[in-house]
Design a protein around this nucleic acid. Structure first.
Lengths: 218, 218
DNA sequence: TGACTGTATATACGATTGTATAGTAATATA
DNA sequence: TATATTACTATACAATCGTATATACAGTCA
C-alpha cells in the first residue's frame, strides 16, 4: 500500500453523501500562495519540499495530499496561474494600444514593466521552462504556445490591415515569443538600468524579425 | 570552525615541500565524468548531491572537498566543459563550410546533429541556464556570450564580403544565438522527426532575422 | 630511518525529507 | 441522535543530506 495517501486525494466522493464530512479549512489557492512566497523572486519551484510548503501554509505535512498528489502537481498549478496572469496583463495592454502605436514596442514595454513590478508569477514562467519533470516542462511549453497563438492572430490582422503579408505566421510569432522570453529571463538578473537597455535591444531584434518576415512575405 | 573542510581544499601547498604527501588517486576530471553520467540526458545538475557524486566517483563523501569547495563549483566546471566542447564542434563545422554554403543552415544542422548524438554536455547548457545559484547562471551566460561573439565576427565578415551591411551586429548575433538555444532546448523533448521540423523552422526564423538586419542595414 | 605532509576513509551527528499509520474533530445524512 | 464521511493532526520511521572529527595510508625530505 504505497499509494494510500496519494489515492485518497483523487478519490471521487461517493455520490450518496458527498456533502458529508468536515469542511475544508484551507484550499488549493492558499497552498499556492504559500508556495509563491517561498519561491520568492529567484528560487526555483523545483526546490520546494512538501514539508516546507505545508509549514508555510500552516498545515500538517500529510494534509498537503488532500489538495495535491505530489509537489509536481503543485508546480504545474503554479505555472498555470502564472500563464493566466501574464496573458491577462499582456492582453489588456494590447487592447489599449491605439492603431497608430507599435504593438511590438508596447508589448515588450508591458512585459518588462511587469518584471520591474516584481510580479509573483512571471519569473516562474521564465526560469523554470527547461528543468524539472516532463509534465512540468510541458506545462510551461503549453503556456508559451498560448502566447504564440495570440501573437500570431494579432500579427496577421495588423499586417493585413496595412496591406502587407507575413511570410510564415507561425514561425514569426514563435520566434518573437521565444526571443522575448529568453531576453526576459536574462532581465531577471539585471538592474533597472540594464533592463532598459535590454528592452531597447529586444525591440530591435523584434523589428528585424518583423522587417524580415514582411520582406519574405512579398 | 564551520569552514574547516572547505578551507583545506583551497590551501596553497606550502612551497617548502609541495611534492610531499600521498599522490591523488582521483582528479577533477573523474568527478566531472561521474557527475555527467549521473545527470544523464535529462536530469538537472542542480539536483546532484555531494554524496551522490562521491558515490558514483567511488570516493568517500569528504574526499569531494579535496577537488571542489561545493557542488556549485562542480556545476560551474561542468558548464565550462560544456561550453568549450560545443564551441569546438561548432567552430570546426564553420570552417568546413565552403563560401557558397549557408553558414546559418549548416550551423543549425550541426547543432541539432549534436543533439541527436546525445552529446553529454549540450543539454547542460540548454537546460540549466535559468536556474540554480547566481554564479551558476552567470557561468552559462558567459558561455553564451562566447557564442554570440564568434557569430558576430562571422556575420560581419560574411556580409561585408557580399557588399552588404548588418544593422546592429550585436543584437543580430544575440538574437540568433538565443533563438537557437531556445529552440534547441525544446528539441530535447522531441523525437527525431519533430526535431527535423524544428530545425527547418529555426532556419526560417534565422533567415527572417538575416533578411531583416540586411534591410535595416542599408 | 624517522618526521612531515597531503590524500583518502570511517564514523558519527543533527537536520530534513517523504510518507505510512493511527487517531481526532467536524459535518451532513439516516 | 447515531453514523458515515471527510479534513486534519500527531507520531514515527527509514532514508538521505552536508559536514565535523579522527584516523590510516602513501609519499618526500631531513
Amino acid at each position: 500500500m504505497q499509494e494510500t495517501a496519494r489515492a485518497r486525494a483523487t478519490e471521487v466522493p461517493a455520490q450518496t453523501a458527498r456533502n458529508a464530512g468536515r469542511r475544508p479549512e484551507i484550499d488549493r489557492e492558499q497552498i499556492i500562495q504559500a508556495a509563491l512566497t517561498l519561491v520568492g523572486p529567484n528560487r526555483s519551484v523545483a526546490t520546494l519540499s512538501l514539508r516546507e510548503v505545508a509549514r508555510e501554509a500552516g498545515i500538517a505535512p500529510n494534509s498537503f495530499y488532500r489538495h495535491f498528489r505530489t509537489v509536481d502537481e503543485l508546480a504545474v498549478a503554479l505555472i498555470e496561474c502564472a500563464g493566466r496572469s501574464l496573458r491577462t496583463i499582456i492582453g489588456a495592454a494590447r487592447q489599449r494600444v491605439g492603431r497608430g502605436q507599435s504593438v511590438i514596442g508596447s508589448s515588450v514595454e508591458v512585459f518588462l514593466a511587469q518584471l520591474d513590478a516584481e510580479d509573483q508569477f512571471l519569473h516562474i514562467l521564465l526560469r523554470e521552462g527547461n528543468v524539472g519533470s516532463r509534465e512540468f516542462r510541458q506545462a510551461v511549453e503549453h503556456q508559451l504556445c498560448f502566447f504564440e497563438d495570440e501573437l500570431k492572430v494579432d500579427l496577421v490582422r495588423l499586417v493585413s490591415l496595412n496591406g502587407g503579408a507575413v511570410h510564415n505566421p507561425d514561425a514569426t510569432a514563435r520566434a518573437m515569443t521565444r526571443l522575448v522570453f529568453a531576453m526576459g529571463t536574462r532581465a531577471l538578473d539585471m538592474t533597472a538600468a540594464e533592463r532598459r537597455a535590454l528592452a531597447e535591444e529586444t525591440v530591435t531584434m523584434l523589428r528585424m524579425i518583423m522587417v524580415g518576415t514582411l520582406a519574405m512575405g512579398s
